[in-house]
Design a protein around this nucleic acid. Structure first.
Lengths: 205, 205
DNA sequence: TGTAAATTGTTAAAAGATTAACGCTGCTAA
DNA sequence: TTAGCAGCGTTAATCTTTTAACAATTTACA
């Protein structure tokens, strides 16, 4: 199984590779990719082992092929899709960040309890009432969810999503969710990152 | 030196402890804290070694004292402060998340290049022109920065911040920043988390 | 063609993080 | 007041991740 950290880096490489291609480059060495991604070249090569490597000694990697391999590795053949619950500032920011960027991975529906938002479209994503979550999720075949609601509501929202068939959750609410076995969760705790940087800046290396 | 992961968990415990206190509880066992934080009890006890422990065998931790120790450990005696650059959706979300929550750690100034935002106050934080960054940062004694601008501008913003004396950065722009030695950076890549969860949901445990 | 220089893919070593284990302390109740 | 239990603090073992090392391969060029 590919380690978590390796997956995170591969996602980074995806962006680096696509930037290089956009600049008209066709090939790159592991140390070039590493520099741009802010990691070690040995990490790049090591990571590429998981996706099946395509480098040539002394002439690096074909970027177009590499891009294809990374996409194929990170996303499935059949497209996966997300829904997002909570269209506050954070929800909108996530939609903006993610909109139309990813092959086979898309945010297909948004939910909010504010009726004023119903049927509005944010970054290409229509907002539904949270009461229709189960129905919409089933109809659209959505399997992943993003929780961007206040902490108090996060657990309840998670429950709704899971009952509707969601198997993986990115949780921005600053509470650890209690979920059954087999559900993948990634907690992204914004305030925690600020504390962490404050700590390590004070207690310098 | 305290490991990164331990710091992240201690930040979590801070919240758990404060929730328990808010519920009127005075003491808790390591396994109770662990349950609420979604970690192992041995991790809790192990982590507490770094902050100086105050448990009593068979009767757990005094929560008020624990709270004090955690605050004292995570933040300095002298208050540290952040500025944030970019008051789009994400910037506002971060301000909302963090506002008035933390002892000795505060977001004291916001910057944006949009003149319409100048002097407006968001969640208790005044917005200045990015052109005044250096001056405001010096005057307010700010040492930490949050970058919440589009990817293209992130590196330039980082440069400005560092020249103004910032030593630690939380970077929400999806590009690795190139910074000199001794600057602490935490990259928080929202889109990456979505890819990661998609991956691990598909390639189940 | 053959030699030198550079970079890959992979394996092995080092570093870092998590988990388990356990002696010791303090509480409870006979 | 002592026996038994429960939970703390710490150390040691396991597991994961990162880094380094190097043989094998490719290119460049004499």
């Amino acid at each position: 199984m590919t380690p978590q950290k390796t997956i995170e880096r591969i996602s980074l490489y995806r962006r680096v590779v696509s930037d290089l291609l956009a600049k008209g480059k066709n090939r790159a060495y592991s140390h070039e990719i590493a520099k741009l991604a802010g990691v070690k070249s040995s990490q790049v090569r090591h990571g590429f082992m998981f996706i099946g490597t395509n480098g040539k000694a002394n002439s690096g990697y074909d970027l177009r092929e590499l891009q294809g391999r990374i996409e194929g590795f990170l996303t499935a053949d059949k497209p996966d899709s997300y829904c997002i619950v909570g269209i506050g500032n954070l929800g909108r920011a996530v939609l903006a960040f993610f909109h139309a960027r990813h092959k086979n991975l898309e945010i297909k529906a948004a939910f909010d309890k504010d009726p004023a938002l119903k049927n509005r479209v944010f970054h290409g994503c229509r907002c539904y009432s949270i009461d229709d979550a189960k129905e919409v999720i089933r109809k659209e075949g959505i399997s992943l969810g993003i929780i961007a609601v206040p902490a108090e509501q996060a657990q309840a929202v998670a429950q709704i999503l899971i009952e509707a068939g969601i198997r993986g959750i990115v949780n921005f609410a600053p509470v650890p969710l209690k979920l059954g076995q087999g559900i993948v969760v990634e907690n992204v705790d914004l305030a925690m990152y600020l504390e962490k940087v404050a700590f390590f800046t004070r207690n310098v290396s």
